[in-house]
Amino acid sequence: MSELTANIAAAEEYIRKFWNEKPVAGIILGSGLGNLAADIEQPIAIPYSDIPHFPVSTVEGHSGQLILGYMQGKPVVAMAGRFHFYEGFSMQQVTFPVRVMKALGIHTLFISNAAGGMNSGFKVGDLMVIKDHINLQPEHPLRGKNDENLGPRFPDMSEPYTKTLILSAFEIAKANNIHLHSGVYVGVQGPTFETRAEYRYMHIIGGDAVGMSTVPEVIVAVHAGLKVFAMSVITDIGIREEENVITHEEVLAAAKDAEPKLTLIFRELIRQL
């Protein structure tokens, strides 16, 4: 048994002391998007600091609890607060919770994030379903010796985001008069927001939105054989040439305003599982 496998087993064993259900879905909630956890029924909240080998989030807008319970009658596990490479964690630490959720039994992972828009058709508060990504982060979560019990050495990333879930999301949005975009998410290290030249560069290479998370978790989810659905809330527009100073407080405020629409789509997708 590898050290990683042993650490996953220790975290799973601890969580099982509080909840012995087999969740169908895992949910990772991004900056300012933690209120979805309030929709979880019969919730059991476990602080990250109590779970063996879990890091502890240091970012405002991330509460730092694992929430276990039910959504639309389905058992789920949600991360209210995620981890980022820029906080000083290794990529293995950033993605460790995905491994634990897989061990608990999930088959589908839902991810939300706050992102900067680079598509001229986007405005603040829009929702973008991620159809693909470009990984510009400087480290890879699968670097090092591979544990074949967790996944293959060379996982196929040609379709990391599950098409059937994307199609269902657009059907749900249409039925509820919610406008959705789809696009390519660019994952960067952070913690600085991008320069205007960097925004232009990332748009030129095919990006529609940019953020400091999501890509590592998606890579590990695909490695683990999970289905993935991810959505960005566009919290600022970085492609503009005019004065456009971005603050974390503005990002949180924009995410909060868009959150009810994102929550509805996530909730309905989980109902359909």
Rank of each mutant, 00 (worst) to 15 (best):
Q137W: 02
F110A: 07
S63H: 13
V124N: 12
M71H: 07
E217Q: 09
F266M: 11
G206I: 00
E268T: 08
L264E: 03
G121P: 11
G207T: 01
D236L: 03
T95C: 14
V76N: 14
E171A: 15
L142D: 04
I130P: 14
A230F: 02
M1W: 08
I28W: 06
K227D: 14
G187C: 04
K261H: 14
V77L: 08
M231K: 01
P155E: 05
E217H: 10
D132N: 13
L127S: 05
V218F: 02
I28S: 11
G30P: 13
A25N: 06
F229E: 01
R99A: 07
L68G: 09
I44E: 11
F154L: 07
L180Y: 02
V188H: 00
L226S: 04
V222P: 09
N113I: 02
I130V: 15
Q189T: 13
G69D: 03
V228Y: 05
I40M: 08
A10C: 10
E139R: 15
I205D: 00
G69Y: 05
M157T: 03
I28L: 14
V222T: 11
A230S: 06
R143G: 08
K22I: 15
E139P: 12
K145Q: 13
F110E: 07
I46R: 09
R240V: 14
R16Y: 02
A25E: 01
H223Y: 05
V124L: 06
E198H: 03
T195H: 07
H140E: 01
G207S: 07
M231R: 05
S31T: 12
R196I: 02
K17W: 01
F54V: 01
G190D: 08
K74P: 13
M118Q: 00
R143Y: 12
I237M: 15
T192Y: 10
V59F: 06
T164Y: 14
G144R: 07
L29W: 05
E159C: 11
P216A: 02
A254K: 05
A45N: 15
N35D: 14
M202I: 00
L262E: 09
G64T: 03
I134E: 05
T247C: 12
M79V: 02
A209Y: 02
K174Q: 15
I51Y: 04
E159W: 04
I178K: 07
K17C: 12
Y161H: 09
E13N: 15
E243H: 14
L29D: 08
F85Q: 11
E41S: 09
